[in-house]
Design a binder for these strands. Structure first.
Lengths: 212, 212
DNA sequence: GTCTATAGGATGATAGAC
DNA sequence: GTCTATCATCCTATAGAC
């Protein structure tokens, strides 16, 4: 017998269930990312998923349940690039590579970035505990690594936390403020990700390289 | 007789009208910034303004009218710091000063920053014309100024547009992602704006200073 | 599992007394 | 100018047929 403490989406057992669950989450990602939690409606999600509204609610018990399911996956994948930063690698290269990986994520997963941005800008009502928890823990750990690199003069002396913040800001900006950037740079194709890559590589390489 | 082409808020003529209009806009700024356009309700705004809902709609004909009134003021004040960047000043100092002014705005006007962020992340439905218009024009103009400085070797050779984007990103991040930063840095008081100032000063000074 | 129909509540906006 | 009462619509969620 299943737990009754929390209403949950049924664990997808059949192929159809799994497929529908994924379709719904993908549709929900699209809609939540563009309109925010409150601005998104089940009608929009249902339409995007090609299902009826009640059928949506057969797979997920409520609107918040869909959003929560998305958020659970999001934070994990969102932090993967930072986790990969290797304390034993070359300091400058590790940090620059991290920034470029983040930029790559903005290009490949702009919807996830905007979903996250919507949540944070509005006060992180649904993931504040995770920010104070696993996110803070990971950042603290990596900040210590960076501090170590600074102590051994492998990189220039800068605040590790604000360095990480600046990497988040500059890279996610290309996904979150995409319309603004397109409005200014105009070009039809997305060549601005290439120029952004060059810029950020140059930017972080220059601040990190020790002055000696 | 008044124009019937566009429903408008009554021009505030008496002191009371002016005061109420301002109270409403301030309340609306608070609520829209935190919940986005769709997430905000007239009830919330009315409560925050200390007025009844119908009384709100006496001063503004609709919810969108309030939002529009806010957006009109916003874009202007938002671009003021960039306008102040002086082609005749010292190049490095002008750009660093611009970045620090933007950071100051994030500290003093976080609600405006989040209002803007909400609008852009969700695709700028209400101000896209202004982005393609006055915003693009101003950025183009200042990018030319920066290109001139690069041409005369007063600053290092970097993409002017992405430089401006990075200034927007790194500074607005402290307002828009405030909860995240607080969750990680934790301190009770807002000392992180001081450390951010030091960091950004250092950051932009280092990339801009020519290598010669 | 999927649908139509609908309950039940919130929300933007208006009517009309004062 | 400001209020109470209310309308009309939209939205989340459920009931129940198939």
């Amino acid at each position: 017998m299943e737990s009754r403490l929390h209403k949950k989406a049924p664990k997808p057992r059949t192929r159809i269930q799994k497929k529908n669950t994924e379709t719904i989450l993908d549709a929900a990602l699209e809609v939540f990312a563009q309109h925010g939690f409150r601005g998104a409606t089940l009608d929009q999600i249902a339409k995007a998923a090609g299902l009826s509204k009640p059928n949506l609610l057969y797979y997920f018990p409520s609107k918040v349940a869909i959003h929560r399911a998305l958020m659970d996956v999001l934070l994990k994948t969102w932090l993967d690039p930072l986790r990969e930063m290797d304390a034993n690698g070359d300091p400058v290269e590790e940090i620059v590579a991290y920034a470029l990986r983040k930029l790559e994520m903005s290009r490949e997963m702009p919807r996830e970035s905007r979903l996250f941005a919507n949540e944070i800008v509005q006060g992180a009502p649904n993931i504040y505990d995770k920010i104070e928890g696993e996110l803070k823990d990971l950042v603290d750990e990596k900040a210590r690594v960076i501090s170590g690199w600074i102590a051994q003069s492998s990189i220039a002396d800068i605040d590790p936390y604000h360095l990480i913040f600046s990497i988040w800001a500059t890279t996610q900006h290309y996904a979150d403020f995409d319309v603004q950037i397109r409005g200014i740079l105009r070009p039809e194709e997305d060549t601005h990700f290439d120029t952004a890559r060059v810029f950020l590589d140059q930017l972080y390489r220059r601040i990190l390289t020790p002055l000696n």
